[in-house]
């Protein structure tokens, strides 16, 4: 009897703590980020107007907003409630946090979904976050910044000018391979080509919204062209935002 009461108290206490401090810390992260964004735009004396920032944000939101809604729903069953607040602040969920949690759970013979697994995942994420923070501070904060100072100007200028192409080439291949969906890939390639080489040539005013237009058009076409079989919906979507 008494041990059962203790059980409830133990996990109930954990639930209470994380349901208060999880949102509070994620909320703090939110506020710090918001302050950084607003300060950079409006506090540095660059004369940026609210309209300019709003336009830029609207384009980003039109392109990625839907993914930001889908990802929390997709990750919830794997992460569990308490770890959601860790994962969406620390980031790198698919490539780092999930593998760390799964390895720790496997070690202790636990499968995702139980309360025991939730605690193991939380502990593993703390370990992963610690290693990640130390790595970032040492290799990027100190070493990277120092390295940057040593490189010749010309090299840095080239890196800055072509970094987008260098990122998008690899990321696109990564997305195509991890999605394993030839049909949607072909639809996306055709629609993107029409938008980039056709639509915005004819209507340059739409340039800013080219990516958002592609995203919406591909979602609509892919939806009507989807395979209507029972095996439709098994894989969790891969992460891009985190």
């Amino acid at each position: 009897m008494s041990s059962k009461t203790a059980t409830l108290t133990g996990l109930a206490a954990f639930d209470r703590t994380t349901s208060i401090w999880g949102p509070v810390t994620l909320g703090l992260g939110f506020l710090v980020s918001l302050a950084a964004a607003l300060f950079t735009a409006f506090g540095t004396g660059l004369g940026i107007t609210g309209h300019e920032v709003w336009t830029a944000f609207a384009i980003v939101f039109a392109t990625f907003g839907i993914i930001a809604v889908v990802e929390p729903i997709a990750y919830y069953p794997i992460l569990g409630r308490s770890a959601m607040y860790q994962a969406f602040m620390i980031g790198n969920i698919a490539n780092k946090l999930l593998p760390a949690a799964l390895i720790a759970q496997t070690d202790l013979g636990e499968k995702p979904g139980t309360r025991r697994a939730e605690l193991i995942a939380g502990a593993a994420i703390i370990g992963a976050a610690t290693v990640h923070i130390v790595t970032l501070i040492v290799f990027v904060g100190f070493l990277g910044t120092w390295l940057l100072g040593l490189l010749p100007e010309g090299l840095i200028a080239v890196a800055r000018l072509y970094i987008l192409s260098a990122v998008f080439g690899a990321v696109t291949i990564q997305a195509i391979v991890s999605m394993k969906n030839a049909r949607t890939t072909i639809i996306a390639a055709v629609v993107a080509a029409i938008v980039v080489y056709g639509v915005i040539r004819i209507a340059p005013a739409l340039t800013n919204y080219a990516t958002a237009i592609s995203v919406i058009a591909v979602i609509i076409v892919a939806w009507f062209a989807r395979k209507r079989t029972a095996t439709d919906a098994t894989e969790a979507p891969a992460s891009i935002g985190h």
Partner: peptide, 18 residues
């Protein structure tokens, strides 16, 4: 949950690459 994110991610990055 599968069609929408797959389509959105592929569309976004293929468009950005092109």
């Amino acid at each position: 949950m599968t069609v929408v994110p797959t389509a959105a991610i592929l569309a976004a990055f293929i468009t950005l690459a092109l």
